[in-house]
Design a protein around this nucleic acid. Structure first.
Length: 313
DNA sequence: ATGATTTGACCCTA
DNA sequence: TAGGGTCAAATCAT
């Protein structure tokens, strides 16, 4: 069996595993939502929501990554690793190194994955390390690296607003996260845009998933929708609800459960993925255009997305 | 005090 | 050599 086939099978298994896990946790969340008072606190609704979101993000990440980078792990000739040798050496050098010659190589574009999204959030913890004005670009390009760089994770990304559609961000990812799940823990963020807030939920890693940690969900109260999202406001799930109410968004929310009808969300391909040739590879990121996500109809979702019955040829 | 962001300098590559 | 990617001191935020 070829390496390519083995990789595809591994990828499929990972996708199925993530989706099945997500469904399982969603079912737990459903139970919890129906009997919130009987929960003794061993697992919170937020924990479950966080796990679901992490599962979806992993799935989307696998789908949006190209085969080549899956196979070679993004460093097949050693030329893609930017500043890796430099960072290793810099740990030994306490002061600023003036001579940075040979410190890094310009990365190649062959192992990049592009996405276009109304939010910069993607479920990972990033640290900004630079910003540049780009020629003929109206908006600066921001450079991020994984928060866990010094633990060995080489993932980086570049984010830039799209000139033609400034509410959208084009994100280019380089390398893959090698930081483990124990390093990652999503935080729920509702996008700053009032409408997107209802439809797009993203999260970023800050604390270990498996740690017994106080609630760290966050919400962006709709403010200036044009501002770049900041992620420093902590609140719990009740805060999210009250925030929505405070921001008058609750008036726009239509309960999802409507009599006996199965209500499946309507997905809008706002976010697209591209390979390094700018060819659209999969419409893997969708935002829900329905304003009816206030109450989850898990039965409907189960029918709408029978994950465990997915078969691959 | 600690961690994140800003920003100018430095360096590499097309 | 210009443009783009990264570093790291200074600054800001918590």
């Amino acid at each position: 069996m070829s390496i390519l086939n083995e990789t595809l099978i591994t990828k499929r298994k990972r996708l199925i595993g993530e989706l099945v896990e997500g469904k399982k946790i969603a079912a737990q969340l459903q139970t919890l939502l129906h009997k919130p008072l009987k929960n003794n606190g061993s697992v919170s609704a937020e924990d479950l929501a966080v796990k679901i979101l992490r599962s979806f993000t992993e799935t989307l990440f696998v789908l949006s990554s190209n085969e080549t980078s899956q196979i070679y792990g993004g460093d097949r000739d050693g030329g893609d690793t930017v500043a890796s040798a430099c960072s290793e050496e810099s740990e030994k050098k306490p002061a600023r190194v003036k001579d940075r010659r040979g410190c890094y190589k310009r990365r190649r574009t062959s192992d990049s994955r592009k996405t276009v999204s109304p939010t910069m959030e993607d479920g990972y913890a990033w640290r900004k390390y630079g910003q540049k004005n780009i020629l003929n670009s109206e908006y600066p390009r921001c450079y991020y690296r994984c928060t866990h760089k010094y633990e060995g994770c080489k993932a980086t990304k570049q984010v830039q607003r799209i000139k033609e559609d400034p509410i959208l961000y084009q994100t280019t990812y380089f390398d893959h996260h090698t930081c483990t799940d124990t390093m990652r823990a999503p935080q729920i963020i509702l996008d700053s845009d009032p409408v997107e807030s209802l439809n797009l939920v993203s999260f970023e890693s800050k604390i270990p998933l498996n740690q017994d940690h106080p609630s760290r969900s966050m919400i962006k109260i709709p403010s200036s929708a044009k501002e770049e999202p900041k992620q420093d406001t902590q609140s719990d799930m009740s805060d999210i609800k009250s925030s929505l109410e405070d921001s008058n968004l609750s008036q726009e929310i239509v309960p999802m459960k409507q009599k006996s009808s199965v209500c499946a969300p309507v997905w809008d391909p706002k976010t697209r993925s591209y390979d390094h040739h700018d060819q659209e590879v999969v419409s893997s990121f969708y935002s829900c255009t329905s304003n009816s996500m206030h109450e989850l109809d898990m039965e409907g979702i189960n029918q709408w997305c029978d994950i465990e019955n997915i078969h691959f040829d």
